[in-house]
Amino acid sequence: MDLDFSSVPSGGWAIDTPSLKRAWRLKMAVTHPDRMVGRSEKEQSIGAQQSALINRAYETLLNPLPRAFYLLERHGVKEISESDSLEDPELLMEVMELRERLEEAESEEEAAEVRKDNARLLDATVETLEKAFGENPPDLETAKQASVQLRYWTNIEKAAREWSRGKRVELQH
């Protein structure tokens, strides 16, 4: 079975989300484990594997951070590891300030403000990724740096979404 999603431009960033979702649904209609009932054990196993691959591809393409990592990998950039961190001191200060504001938040409203400010940074980083991958050839160094940044903004988003009074704020890098 061809697992290629035609809504993804060759090496590019832009995703036609409705087309991606349509392609995912069509492929899942064929491979979903519920469709394999009554088939041989081997066919059920193959269907389950294909279904898992299709789901993983869909989630990777739908979400900016895994999509950035995937596109970098397709262009031969080594995997971004936990040891890759922000080298820009100004950017690192922004990350630390957002984290501190979240730790010091006393209400849902304050946590929501951090989330709102972080969303602006996240959106700007996604725009940077779109431009970097849109160049011919892609600007892989900028894309890699933006991917590291996006990992921080994504982690702050998750922490802000899960915020509760008195709970320790932990960011994964």
Rank of each mutant, 00 (worst) to 15 (best):
E73A: 07
L3T: 08
E104F: 12
E113F: 03
P33R: 03
L102G: 02
R74C: 03
E104A: 14
V95G: 04
A119K: 11
L122M: 13
R56C: 00
L71Q: 00
Q145E: 15
L86G: 07
M93R: 15
R74H: 01
L102M: 04
E41R: 13
V95D: 01
K144F: 04
A105W: 02
L102W: 00
E41M: 13
V8L: 12
A105E: 02
G38M: 07
P9L: 06
G47F: 01
E82N: 11
W13E: 00
L92M: 14
S45I: 00
S83E: 10
Q44E: 07
E127L: 11
L20I: 07
A132M: 05
L171C: 05
F133K: 10
L65A: 04
L53V: 05
L98R: 13
A119W: 11
A159N: 07
L53R: 11
D139Y: 08
D16T: 03
A105P: 06
S85Y: 12
L62R: 12
V37F: 11
P64R: 07
L20R: 12
P33T: 01
S147A: 14
V126L: 08
T31S: 08
L129T: 09
R161I: 10
R165I: 13
A143L: 09
K116T: 14
A119I: 02
L92Q: 15
T142N: 05
S107L: 06
E106G: 14
S147L: 05
D139W: 04
Y152D: 12
V37N: 11
A111F: 00
E94S: 07
N118Q: 10
R165H: 11
K27Y: 01
L53F: 10
S107W: 06
E87D: 09
P66C: 04
A105N: 02
V114R: 05
Q50S: 10
Q149D: 12
S45E: 00
G166N: 02
N118P: 08
P66G: 03
K21E: 12
L129G: 05
W13Y: 04
H32V: 02
N136A: 13
M93S: 14
P137Y: 09
Y152A: 15
A14K: 15
R25C: 02
